Simulated assay, not measured.
Amino acid sequence: MTADQPSAGPYAIVAVASSAGGIQALSTLLGALGPELAVPVLVVQHLDPRHRTVIADVLSRRTDLPVKLAEAGEKPSPGTVYIAPPDRHLLIGSDGILTLSSTELVHFVRPSADLLFESVAGAYGARAIACVLTGTGMDGAMGAEAVQSRGGTVIAEDPQTAEFPGMPRAVVDTGAVDFVLPLVEIAAVVHGLLEATGQ
């Protein structure tokens, strides 16, 4: 299936990437997705590996969705948010099972949005949605191209309104983007995509 062909079935997964400013952006997005989400959400947020992370606890207070750090060997459940642990790449296999990796940094970061998006593209093809939110650098741009090349849908936060525009701008600059939206509009578009294919 090519990127210009319609999806053959409903979306199966949402993958989200953020970096600087990401906790607030994720709070806004996840809080607006609501409790009845039909697919799992995988998140790469760049975190300081030197400290124990409380991101799952923080985000749990800001959304009705269950939020947890991803664990190797898990099969993601619909309506649950899985966050890459600090200093571990998060990937998903064609069998729908999560894996964690300590392989080398990609664009100076681990976890890498590029690796997550590429694994989601490989596992789900046209049934994947990838979202890139605020952040510095270019992590997520190559992965977004992979998602779109497999027929998936790519959403970038509008660089004009992002707290840190580097990551979403890098995605927009590739041309591999279907929607460029203010942060507050992304959740509604995700819901619209899920509902349009669920009929």
Rank of each mutant, 00 (worst) to 15 (best):
T2A: 13
D4Q: 13
D4E: 13
A8M: 13
A8F: 11
A12Q: 15
V14P: 08
V16P: 00
A20H: 09
L26P: 05
T28A: 12
G31C: 08
L33E: 00
L37Y: 03
V44D: 09
D48T: 02
P49V: 09
H51E: 15
H51I: 15
A56Q: 03
D57V: 10
D57E: 15
V58Q: 00
R61S: 14
R61G: 14
T63L: 11
T63P: 04
D64F: 06
P66W: 03
A70F: 01
A70L: 04
P76S: 07
S77G: 07
S77M: 13
I83D: 04
P85N: 07
R88W: 13
G96M: 06
S101A: 04
E104F: 11
V106H: 06
R110Q: 06
A113I: 11
L116N: 00
F117G: 01
V120I: 12
G125S: 08
A126G: 14
A126T: 12
A130I: 10
T136V: 11
G137T: 07
M138D: 12
G140C: 08
A141E: 03
G143R: 01
V147T: 09
V147N: 00
G152S: 05
V154Y: 03
T161C: 09
E163C: 07
P165V: 02
M167C: 06
D173I: 11
T174Y: 00
G175I: 15
F179Y: 15
V180A: 11
P182L: 04
V184D: 12
I186N: 03
T197F: 03
Q199E: 14
